[in-house]
């Protein structure tokens, strides 16, 4: 018996080796690169150079604001869409849901470039309005990631509780804030985590939509990569990792929906 368990368990060995070699070790290397110079000596210079530069602080602030704005706008649009789809206000909700995911089958860069060209045509030139164009591009890209977890949460809603609330005399607004909103909190939290961090670390959307006139944390990592400045790139990556860790810590006790990328198909 013990011999059988032995064989099955060891099937994970190639997987474990691959993950250690190409996921765990690279992360430690980033950490090492972030705090060393080109000769390999320990230094805080990369950190000081990064934070001593006014434009870096600006980048972090802009990333944060665009991240928050994108999360809020996506939720404001996505929440009602998911609610209407889940509560039989629409015919064939599953098909409607598929329709919302379908654009994701077009290549991400192609889709982003298409929206840029369309905006250009109707007079919103990314070169003149980099922030507006980037925001539109962000919302366009992340909306499905918000609708999906919210829809999943809402299909599981106990509708009788909502009816009970209104039967017991709650006004529609009260029903919403006291019953529906708390019950859909897991969906809201996972939607927000699916949008906020990826927005801050993205660089393709801001590059393409904003005609390379705007810099997010992702853009600054990419810039250092282009110049071959691995040590500087690593320190920005470590800052990004810290932000992700803080985000995970802040939401660790909150119930969440499963990662929705698995349900995209």
């Amino acid at each position: 018996m013990s011999k059988i368990k032995f064989t099955r368990k060891w099937l994970a060995l190639p997987y474990a080796l691959f993950m250690i070699l190409f996921v765990v070790i690279p992360l430690f290397l980033i950490l090492a690169y972030a705090f060393t110079d080109a000769e390999g000596n320990f230094t805080f210079n990369n950190l000081l150079t990064f934070f001593g530069n006014g434009s870096s602080i600006n980048t972090i602030l802009v990333s944060f604001i665009i991240g928050v704005a994108n999360t809020v706008i996506c939720l404001l649009i996505g929440y009602p869409v998911a609610y209407f789809l889940a509560h039989r206000d629409m015919k064939m909700p599953a098909v409607m849901m598929l329709l919302f995911i379908m654009p994701m089958w077009i290549n991400f860069v192609l889709r982003t470039a298409a929206s840029r060209d369309l905006l250009f045509w109707i007079g919103i030139n990314g070169g003149e309005y980099p922030y507006l164009a980037t925001m539109i591009g962000m919302v366009y890209n992340y909306l499905p990631f918000v609708i999906l977890p919210l829809y999943t949460t809402m299909t599981k809603l106990d509708y009788s509780q909502i009816e009970a609330a209104s039967d017991l005399g709650a006004r529609p607004r009260q029903t919403f804030t006291k019953v529906i909103l708390p019950m859909t909190a897991p969906g809201i939290v996972s939607a927000a985590t699916m949008v906020f961090m990826p927005t801050m670390s993205s660089f393709v959307i801001s590059d393409v939509m904003g005609e390379r006139k705007l810099s997010l944390i992702g853009n600054s990592i990419q810039l250092y990569f282009d110049q071959g400045l691995w040590h500087m790139g690593s320190i920005v990556a470590v800052v990004m990792l810290l932000l992700i860790a803080i985000g995970m810590f802040a939401t660790k006790n909150v119930q969440k929906e499963d990662d929705v990328r698995g349900t995209m198909l």
């Binding site: 996921v23 980033i30 990592i221 790139g233 990556a237 990004m240 990792l241 992700i244």
Partner: peptide, 15 residues
């Protein structure tokens, strides 16, 4: 899954 894709990408490049 949790990591930013650009951090994963840079970490592989550094490797």
């Amino acid at each position: 899954v949790m990591n930013a894709e650009i951090v994963t990408a840079l970490s592989l490049t550094v490797l």
